[in-house]
Design a protein around this nucleic acid. Structure first.
Length: 413
RNA sequence: GUGGGCGUAGCUCAGCUGGUAGAGCACUCGGUUGUGGUCCGAGAUGUCGCGGGUUCGAGCCCCGUCGCUCACCCCA
């Protein structure tokens, strides 16, 4: 084999691509049933746009696919969906109508990381953004849509973790104390550097020693302003009212620095190290940061690759994506033409129809019809064309009925 | 970016202490004229990831490289 796919990309091909398509359409249907409308965006943007995600993040500092286009512009393959969505909303004035502006996106994203289970250099996400309204009920609805999507996929072994990152004042007060606390710890150089960029990151360290050291660190939730606190409590009330289980994880750290207020993550138990199947939160300053109106927003991104992995890990039975109604076997050149016409007209009437191609023995063609899973099959040759009548065979029972060629549609119902 | 494991037919893998490749599944054809699911028979298939090296001789040893995979890291 001469060529291989680029390193670390996720590719879907039959038969698994059917499962992938089902995961995607299930999540998409869940989202659009809540009134979110499609945003079909470029997969590359001005590099500076993504830089606004936060220079301290790994995503921006070392995982972007950046290149110069022929006009000398610095272009980057989108590593996430939110800023692109906000850019489009702002650019096209979607935030000038009634708010919140509710949009969703779906497609490939790119991050130059070392590949691993559930982590790819090109991966697929679907996400929503509700822009312009500050309302705890909206936070709860956004979370509930993600939860509903996972439930529709048949997933049960996941959990919702959430916290509140509070408003700017809350975070500033906490940061002062946290930095002070970390300064008193005995840490290695690399960890100190990470703490410099974003002290919150130390909460996410998996090493036991660090976890132990951080056990007594000041927690942001304790610094929440009265408004933030009340808002977070209300989000929780709404979720509880909807019967959505969650746990508060005060040490949760998201990879993108723009989150404020309600922040959440869906974690699946059967996926190994890359267990986050989705996450999101509110972002108060991001719209303003990219040059739009200074309005808030909230959204989530769900990983399609990981959702599929989770579906497979839980053994979810995926509904058959394609079962044809009829498999037509033409015998001879003249019959091929008739079969083609017949298939086209049935498909136009909403039937799923497949044909046998290549000049195979009838017996072989029947085997193919059998493997296709078609409900019915029929053979068309000189006799049938002369009489205008074919034998329609029900594959599961083997029984056949004579049907006029011009009334096939009603016979298949 | 760092570390461990792995790379043999489309797929899952076997290949003993180095002697120029095999199985099952899948695939193709057939088991007397135009009807499937079982069964039987026959057949095709690999630059043994790639490139060097050691050797009379390497799929098996050594080096490099690419890729896969798992973990760290990071996150969807």
């Amino acid at each position: 084999m001469k060529f291989q796919a680029p390193k670390g990309v996720s590719e879907y091909f039959p038969p698994r691509s059917g499962a992938f398509a089902w995961v995607r359409s299930t999540l998409e249907n869940t989202i659009s049933s809540a009134g979110y409308q499609l945003l079909e965006l470029p997969i590359f943007e001005d590099t500076d746009l993504f830089a606004r995600i936060g220079a301290s993040t790994d995503v921006v500092s070392k995982e972007m696919y950046t290149f110069e286009d022929r006009g000398g512009r610095s272009i980057t393959l989108r590593p996430e969906g939110t800023v692109g969505a906000l850019r489009a909303v702002s650019e096209h004035g979607l935030d000038r109508g009634s708010l919140p502006a509710k949009v969703y996106y779906c497609g490939p994203f790119f991050r130059a990381e070392r590949p691993q289970k559930g982590r790819y250099r090109q991966f697929y996400s679907i996400g929503i953004e509700a822009i312009g309204t500050h309302d705890a009920a909206l936070d709860a609805e956004v979370i509930s849509i993600a939860d509903a999507g996972f439930k529709r996929l048949g997933l049960t072994k996941y959990r919702l973790e959430m916290t509140s990152l509070g408003d700017a004042e809350s975070r500033a007060a906490h940061r002062v104390d946290l930095v002070k606390f970390i300064a008193g710890l005995d840490l290695d150089e690399e960890t100190k550097e990470r703490a410099q960029l974003n002290p919150l990151r130390l909460f996410d360290d998996k090493r036991e020693e660090v976890r132990a050291l951080m056990a007594k660190a000041p927690i942001l939730l304790d610094y929440l302003s009265p408004e933030s606190k009340a808002n977070f409590a209300e989000v929780q009330r709404h979720l509880t009212a909807m019967g959505i289980a969650f746990t508060i994880n005060a040490r949760m750290v998201r990879g993108l620095d723009y989150y404020t207020g309600t922040t959440f993550e869906f974690v699946h138990d059967l996926l190994g190290a890359q267990s986050g199947i989705g996450g999101g939160g509110r972002y108060d300053g991001l719209m303003g940061e990219i040059g739009g109106q200074d309005i808030t927003g909230i959204g989530f991104g769900l990983g399609l690759d990981r959702a599929l992995l989770a579906v497979e890990a839980e053994g979810v039975v995926i509904p058959e994506t394609f079962v044809s109604d009829l498999f037509i076997i033409p015998m001879g050149e003249a019959a091929k033409s008739e079969a083609l016409k017949c298939a086209a007209s049935l498909r136009a009437n909403g039937f799923k129809v497949e044909l046998a191609f290549g000049d195979r023995a009838l017996k072989t063609a029947m085997k193919i019809a059998d493997k296709s899973g078609a409900r019915y099959s029929l053979v068309i040759g000189d006799e049938e064309m002369a009489s205008g009548v074919v034998e329609v065979k029900e594959m599961s029972t083997g029984s056949a009925n004579s049907v006029r060629l011009d009334s096939l549609a009603s016979a298949l119902k």
